[in-house]
């Protein structure tokens, strides 16, 4: 296989990746820094500080931070439960957490409308239990719920993988050396699962930050996230330059999260 011509077999992909990955990204930057006439400008990028855009961006950051945190808070205990308490067939069980992804994600998000709406499933339950109804549809909590719902599996998987990979004997060794539950968690389990947690965080953070679908479906079109702004610039206003400018800003966040991920990945294999 070390024939000197063998490496040219990769040429089609190389051409493809330059044409469909590198050039498009350069185009985003090109459009971001030019105006409609093709002259250089930083207006498109600077436009992020306009009232509407900065509001959308900050809102997006707030949403994505909240959804990342919630996902972590839900997924971590789940990973611990899956890898310790449940002894039987955890591979089948973890499959259960992935399976929902095989139903169209737009439809699944849309179904939450049904569950959350004024006379929906949840309020039916609440009324039956004589509890006050919950009106969160088309409000921020609904969007947050949609994000947590859509991206939770992205957190569960890496966290579960890193927690379940911890050698049981390490925990036994810690107990043997006198550690109680608190010490075992903070000195052994948590640091060893950190790589998984970090990948989980970036995997939830980036799509939460950039989504426009969830806010569309569950926000009733009234709440604009940065993703919605970009989507409208491209598909409705056909203002490529402005859209590319905001996309370039988003890419900064994505690059930061990529750098963090790769840093922790390297530490993991030290």
């Amino acid at each position: 296989m070390n024939n000197k011509y063998t490496r040219y077999v990769a040429a089609p992909y190389l051409i493809w990746s330059v044409g469909f990955i590198i050039i498009p990204l350069c185009l985003v930057l090109y459009y971001a820094f030019t105006n409609a006439d093709g002259a250089f400008t930083i207006d498109n990028v600077a436009d992020i500080i306009s009232y509407v855009n900065i509001k959308a961006l900050l809102l997006s950051i707030a949403f994505s931070l909240a959804s990342t945190l919630l996902c972590l808070l839900i997924a971590y205990p789940l990973a611990v439960v899956l890898s310790s308490v449940i002894s039987t067939n955890s591979s089948i069980l973890s499959l259960l957490f992935i399976l929902p992804m095989w139903m169209n994600s737009l439809l699944r998000t849309y179904a939450w409308q049904n569950i959350l709406e004024r006379k929906g499933v949840i309020n039916g339950f609440l009324t039956a239990l004589n509890l006050p109804p919950l009106y969160i549809i088309n409000k921020p909590p609904a969007i947050l719920l949609g994000m947590v719902y859509d991206f939770l599996p992205f957190m569960i998987l890496p966290v579960y993988n890193s927690v379940s990979r911890i050698d049981k004997d390490l925990i036994n060794a810690a107990r043997d050396l006198g550690a109680g539950y608190r010490d075992i968690f903070f000195r052994v389990i948590w640091p060893l699962s950190l790589p998984g947690v970090i990948s989980g965080i970036t995997m939830v953070f980036v799509p939460s930050l950039t989504t426009f679908v969830i806010s569309d479906i569950l926000g009733g079109g009234k709440i604009l996230l940065i993703g919605n702004v970009i989507e409208q610039l491209f598909t409705q206003d056909s203002d490529w330059n402005a859209g590319a400018g905001l996309s370039a800003v988003l890419m900064i966040f994505i690059v930061i999260s990529m750098v963090i991920t790769s840093k922790y990945d390297k530490e993991d294999i030290r």
Binding site: L170, N172, A173, V188, L192
Partner: peptide, 11 residues
């Protein structure tokens, strides 16, 4: 105190 079969050193 125990010395484990595969050492179980904290990596």
């Amino acid at each position: 105190n125990t010395v484990f079969q595969k050492y179980a050193l904290f990596p």
